[in-house]
Amino acid sequence: MAEPILEIRDLTKSFGALTVSDHISLDLRAGEIHALIGPNGAGKSTLIKQICGELQQDSGSIRFAGRDLAGTGTVERARLGLARTFQVSSVAPEFTTLQNVVLAVQGASGRSFGFLRPVLSDPSLTGPARRHMERVGLTGRENILASILSHGERRRLELAMALAMEPHVFLLDEPMAGLGPEGSVELTAILANLRHEAPILLVEHDMDAVFALADRISVLVYGRIIATGNVDDIRSNPEVQSSYLGETA
């Protein structure tokens, strides 16, 4: 078995007396969707923030593509190929959808110090941007300001921006949040295809989506991973049922 692309070992993080990440070990292999589930306050978003460099862990390690990420910041990790979407949609509201995606293409290109050539007449930026917009179903919405997109469209815009970075790993923080049943189904179909481009670490509350998509599931409760396994393992795990699935099912 090949070395995992993302390898988290014994990751620990405390805020004062509260341990939000308690010796978390987790990995993400090529071609898989690894779902991270757990009740509210389990520390899922805190884990994502540590992976993308917004927070520094107290101890433990995060290795990405064979490289220890200690001491690298958010910008550098994004450059290395970690693309994230935010739990609460985070786009540039005064830009059009196209400008937002172009910004992501540009970020991946590593060249932001061109001063004279208009970005919107640069096909090396707009070409890929339009392609990624098409994949998430935003074609025809290029010139709409991001601030007046519907909630569902904004979620898809975020995904297009993540795609535009052509990353090695997707970190998706509750992409289905607030989408409603049809929206979730559509997005599930998009995500199912995404794993061929790069593996996905998927934080999600929508259990239908998780069970439909995930190759493996890890369950996080009070900062600890209490189980990791395939869908059937997790469904039948008594500890998981009592601490998490039991609440919702």
């Binding site: 993308c52 958010t74 910008v75 550098e76 994004a78 450059r79 693309a83 994230r84 935010f86 985070s90 786009v91 540039a92 509201p93 005064e94 830009f95 400008q99 172009v102 910004l103 992501a104 540009q106 970020g107 991946a108 590593g110 932001s112 970005v119 921006m161 535009a164 970075m165």
Partner: peptide, 18 residues
């Protein structure tokens, strides 16, 4: 584009590697 993006949402600009 990057400069105006950073004015509107600096976290987003960092997240795309700028």
């Amino acid at each position: 584009l990057a400069l105006q993006g950073a004015r509107q949402n600096v976290e987003r600009v960092r997240a795309v590697g700028i």
